[in-house]
Amino acid sequence: MPAGIRAVTRLLLDLDARPGVRGLGDLAVRAFRAAPPVTAANAGALAELAGVAGWILFEEERQAEAHAHNLAALALARDDDARTPTLLNMAMQQTHVGRFRAALDLVARGESTTRSTRVRAMFALRRARVHSRTRRQAEALRAVDRAWAALDDDDRAPPWAWWIDETEVRAHRAAVLANLGRLAEAAGTFPADDDLRFREVVRAMRFRTLSALGRWDGPPPVFTSPRAARTAFGRAGRVTAREPTGHDPAPTRAAPTERGGPDAATPGTCPQPVDSL
């Protein structure tokens, strides 16, 4: 039974890495709802499925549903290592919706339990994003430096941590610089584009930064991920990626601020404070 659940989770992850995939959130919700009842044998597999669904729903700007699936993942997880990826996702989501204290609490919780230096690097990047949104420049850059230093070989890194690499750290550093208003540095820091769907938001941050500098040539790009589209164009709500029309609002050219930078989002879209966990 756990093997079947994990096969569904792997399918969702595979689809999440493919460019151009749409409507994956509905599939993730249906998969979790259709899963078998919880038992001692399958709770861990169900936690993984719920956590992946939470991430996908976050990408699709379905924040209340994402939060609910994340809570389910934490409740189902049987140990701290199993909770770690969900804590990372929740910290990113709380930063995205402007709940910075909750995000830092989640980071501290994750840092206190993980034994992996590579995972600690990811928590440091979550901390850096919070500090950049609140314009605490020194703290933000120190956190990024800690992440770089933690990317050495790590025999305690869990299998799912494969994506925590130099490309990921460069993307976060660029986002931090953009949030701090250091746009030219950010533009030169963003990594080259790749085709991974979950990194589409990096391309959106790069587009918004270059647009703010007046250095974007050509038509605006089209994004599949609603979070990427929102990051790029500043649109609120559930964004449906589509070809831009003459009636679409132009990308902002203002310097990023706490509400207008690449991380910007409307706060208060989670159903309850994460501090209550």
Rank of each mutant, 00 (worst) to 15 (best):
R135M: 09
R135H: 14
Q137L: 04
A138H: 08
A138N: 01
E139S: 07
E139G: 00
A140T: 01
L141Q: 08
A143N: 03
V144D: 03
R146C: 01
A147S: 13
A150D: 15
A150P: 00
L151N: 12
D152Y: 04
D152G: 12
D153T: 11
D154K: 03
R156H: 05
R156K: 08
P159A: 15
W160V: 01
A161E: 02
A161Q: 02
A161I: 02
W163G: 00
I164S: 06
E166T: 13
R170M: 10
R170S: 07
A171Q: 08
A171L: 12
H172W: 15
R173W: 11
A175F: 10
A175S: 11
A175Y: 06
A175L: 12
V176T: 07
L177Y: 04
A178S: 15
A178C: 08
N179Q: 15
N179S: 10
N179D: 15
G181E: 04
G181D: 04
R182T: 02
L183H: 10
A184E: 14
A186W: 09
G188R: 11
T189Q: 13
F190M: 09
F190A: 07
P191G: 08
D193F: 05
D193I: 02
D194K: 00
D194Y: 04
R197W: 08
F198C: 03
R199T: 09
R199C: 03
E200P: 00
R203W: 05
M205W: 15
R206L: 10
R208E: 08
A212K: 07
L213F: 11
G214P: 00
R215A: 15
R215I: 01
D217L: 11
D217Y: 06
P220A: 07
P220D: 05
P221T: 01
V222C: 00
F223Y: 15
F223A: 02
S225H: 03
P226T: 03
P226L: 12
R227F: 06
A229H: 12
R230S: 15
F233W: 11
F233S: 03
A236T: 13
R238T: 07
V239L: 12
V239E: 11
V239Y: 14
A241W: 02
A241C: 00
R242M: 02
P244M: 04
D248P: 00
A250W: 11
P251Y: 13
R253L: 01
A254K: 06
A254C: 03
A255R: 15
P256K: 06
P256I: 01
E258S: 11
R259T: 14
P262G: 15
P262L: 10
P262W: 10
P262K: 02
D263V: 02
D263R: 11
A264P: 01
P267Q: 09
P267A: 10
T269I: 05
P271M: 12
Q272P: 00
D275S: 14
